[in-house]
């Protein structure tokens, strides 16, 4: 029998499980082990989701679920009520549709930019180069920062009297309203968001690159295969599972963007950088009248769109795998 503190601790935590196993039987023990996790999931994920559904089909401003009158699909109808869905001004909830439009454009540019920049960064960081560890840490560092800190750093850089404008003025230019002009503000929310999150995705892609067997590259080199062909024929196909993970995660994260952008621009100027989560937050909490039903309905619509997009991506990934296997 082993001795020492580890064995003592092990024996100390063994006995309640042994007692439980005697009482419940070995077949039921897995449930005991997953129960704490299920409990946390139930309280913090499943219950709020169910509650959200209830809020979405009820009206009024009351917080307690039991006090809220059932209104069926009225909240969804209100959100979707437009004379012409391509003209925001004709929609009853025009701010919802502006937020939807802004989010859609943001997702397109942010996800594409994020994946491309993360991929290029991962490819560079995967090469043998001096200070490789240092650079890996540098690119990952923003991920460790709180979103509020990220936003404040960039606000300091981009405000009218900020660092970037100081550089522009010092070089003979005139101040640029980086956060006061709708187009500039939109562009900077994308840039800041990519800067803040690319480290994480770079890490995932870097792990994928390092898992590719080096003998494949050696064989290609011996055959004199061009670098571009190596990238498309070896690197990309073998990196595809990681790319799919990155794509799905980046997409979900982009749709959920809120914290750093809210601090950076507050959704302004006007509603130029107001994305869907900010709309939900303001409708539910920031206004005097907390229209929880409308906010819950909007969040269900967003959840639905995310689900469809994720399923489409997974289906595309499965299809690609099948095609690859056939070859």
């Amino acid at each position: 029998m082993s001795r020492g503190p580890a064995a003592l601790v092990s024996r100390a935590i063994d006995w309640p499980f042994e007692a439980l196993q005697r009482a419940l039987g070995a077949a039921r023990m897995p449930y005991v082990f997953v129960a704490p996790n299920l409990l946390v999931f139930g309280i913090f994920v499943a219950a709020p989701m169910i509650l959200n559904v209830w809020y979405a089909v009820t009206g009024g401003t009351q917080l307690m679920p039991g006090d809220r009158p059932f209104v069926g699909a009225a909240n969804f109808a209100e959100l979707l009520d437009c004379t012409n869905h391509f003209v925001v001004a004709t929609c009853k909830q025009d701010r919802f549709w502006r937020a939807v439009g802004n989010t859609a454009w943001f997702v397109v540019f942010q996800v594409v930019g994020l994946v491309l920049i993360s991929l290029v960064t991962a490819l560079i960081l995967n090469r043998r180069m001096p200070w490789r560890g240092f650079f890996r840490a540098v690119f990952f560092y923003p991920v460790l920062l709180s979103p509020v800190v990220v936003a404040l750093i960039w606000k300091w850089i981009l405000q009218p009297d900020g660092v970037l404008n100081a550089v522009v003025v010092a070089n003979g230019g005139t101040r640029i309203p980086f956060l006061l002009d709708p187009s500039w503000a939109f562009i900077w929310t994308i840039v800041v968001s990519i800067w803040a999150h690319m480290g994480f995705y770079t890490l995932i892609l870097l792990a994928g690159l390092q898992a590719i067997p080096s003998d494949l590259y050696e064989a290609a080199e011996m055959d004199g295969t061009a670098h571009v062909r190596v990238f498309w024929r070896i690197t990309m196909p073998l990196l595809m599972p990681n790319m799919m993970v990155v794509l799905v995660l980046a997409l979900i994260r982009a749709v959920q963007s809120f914290d750093e952008i809210f601090v950076l621009t507050g959704g302004g100027p006007g509603t130029a950088t107001q994305y869907i989560v900010q709309f939900i937050y303001e409708t539910a909490f920031a206004n005097q009248t907390h229209i929880l039903g409308l906010a819950a309905a909007a969040s269900m619509l967003v959840g639905g769109v995310l689900l469809v997009l994720t399923l489409l991506q997974l289906a595309a990934s499965a299809q690609a795998k099948r095609s690859e296997a056939k070859r």
Binding site: L179, G267, G268, P269, N287
Partner: peptide, 14 residues
């Protein structure tokens, strides 16, 4: 100046 009203959106105070 847009610096005050333009730098935030929604109902945010500035």
């Amino acid at each position: 100046s847009k610096q005050i009203w333009g730098s935030v959106g929604g109902t945010a105070y500035r």
